[in-house]
Computed example of a mutant assay.
Amino acid sequence: MRKLDQKLLQIGYMLFVFVSVMSLSSWNLYFAKIINFNTTMIIFVLASLVLVSVISDWTITRIAAVIVFSGLLLVYFQLYRSSYILPVLLSLIVGTGFHVKTVLKCDFYSRLVSVILVVVLSLFSILPKSGYGADLTDFHFTIFCYGFTYANILAFEIAVLFVESLLVFKSKMGYQFLLVIIVTIVEIQLGYETGAVFCIVGYFVYYTTRQSSTKMTKIYLTAATLFVPIFTFISVYIAKMYSSTDTLWNSINDLLSGRAEIWQYYYQAMPIKPWGNLQTINQKTMGVVGFGAFDGAFIQFLLTFGVISILLLFFLLFLVTISKREIKNKRILAVLILPIVLSGFTETNGFLVTFSPFYMLISANLFSVAQEVSLESTPGTLTVSEEVK
């Protein structure tokens, strides 16, 4: 039974990643009538994984975590019905039935195959390779890039895959250093400097913790935890104090690619509340500052889903930092979490379940008692290794 539930979870997780990547592509703009990879499908797949994970091993800690996440899920569902906070909470529940290394390997192989599929579909003109697509989406920034609706989406996926590859493959440091240079150049060519920083930071954390350093790993996780309230405070301060008539603030706004003005716009329209704002801005309305873009995970979560969402992020990362779990697993989290948190100041991608295994990894590290399921060198081959004590 234990082997069966882990195999089903593995297959289900791979399906979830595939659906997630396809939802970020331009597929729904052309083939939605055939199959629509939308939020409803993502939630359905995650809910199915929750049911499968029920047959995994349970502890008091895992039961308590699931009760808390389920309670938050019910509250947010009552408030918002369909929203990207629901997949976040579902991912935290599902993660309690996984092992950290299982999530990492499943995510890497399924994400790699899914991204390559989208790119190949664009090369065969099934999906658009390039071109302006705002007339189809009513969103100003829709510019197709190898099957995806925006270059930053593909660039972020590449960044996540690069960092995951460092952890999945044990190649020589020389090859890894060459790879980080190549990927960084690709990120810059795609116009996504945040992705370049993501890759460099991920490689740096990986390199400095390669000897399973408990001290360095804890330092990085502590930094990521502290960055949550720090970046939230800075974002709110900028939103509150920004002045378009001040030269210094205009320079800061330029440095942040116009985000200071955008943050102020949303801050004034959506005041800070414990559970967020039921009334949000229609981002497709003409005249919206920034053409409806709202980047910056911390201020976006704060204004949209309230103080509770930020406290949840902080508390989860704090628990990861102080947990006594296996150092190798905590190192995996450090390598992925610190770049995601750093990029979250100006971006939102890493904090959405469709872009990274952020929540799955955190939940698996904190609450899972499942056996470790490994993927052999050939993707798709499933084996069960010794139980994690």
Rank of each mutant, 00 (worst) to 15 (best):
A159T: 09
L278P: 02
N253Y: 11
A370F: 07
A224V: 09
P87Q: 03
I332M: 04
L73P: 07
A224C: 12
S363R: 02
L333T: 05
L303R: 01
K218V: 10
W249E: 11
G95D: 06
F44K: 09
L319N: 04
L366I: 02
T149C: 06
W249R: 08
V288P: 00
V115R: 00
L127W: 09
K105E: 15
G258V: 09
I219R: 14
V68W: 10
V369M: 09
L303P: 00
A65M: 07
S165K: 06
L333G: 04
I340R: 04
S23L: 07
R325F: 00
Y203E: 05
W58S: 14
L24Q: 11
V50Y: 00
I182E: 09
T285Q: 15
S171V: 13
Y220A: 11
S83V: 01
S114K: 00
Q283W: 05
F108S: 03
E157D: 13
Q283S: 11
V388K: 12
M1K: 13
T245W: 13
V289S: 08
S25Y: 04
L319A: 09
Q10N: 15
F294R: 07
L123Y: 07
T142G: 01
V17N: 06
L366M: 02
K215Q: 11
L221C: 15
G191T: 06
K105L: 05
T208D: 06
H140M: 00
F162I: 06
F358Y: 12
D295T: 09
A224Y: 04
F162H: 08
F141Y: 08
Y30V: 04
F69H: 12
N28L: 07
F318E: 05
S235Y: 08
T149W: 01
G12S: 08
S91M: 10
L167P: 05
M14G: 12
K7Q: 14
V19Y: 03
L74E: 12
R2V: 10
I200G: 01
I234V: 15
K324I: 01
F315V: 14
V180G: 02
Q211S: 15
K129F: 15
R81M: 01
G380F: 07
M216D: 02
S212D: 15
V160C: 10
T348W: 00
A32E: 12
I11D: 04
G276H: 08
T321K: 03
P274L: 12
F291E: 07
K215C: 06
Y80S: 07
V228L: 09
M270A: 10
S23N: 10
I34K: 10
I219S: 11
F367R: 03
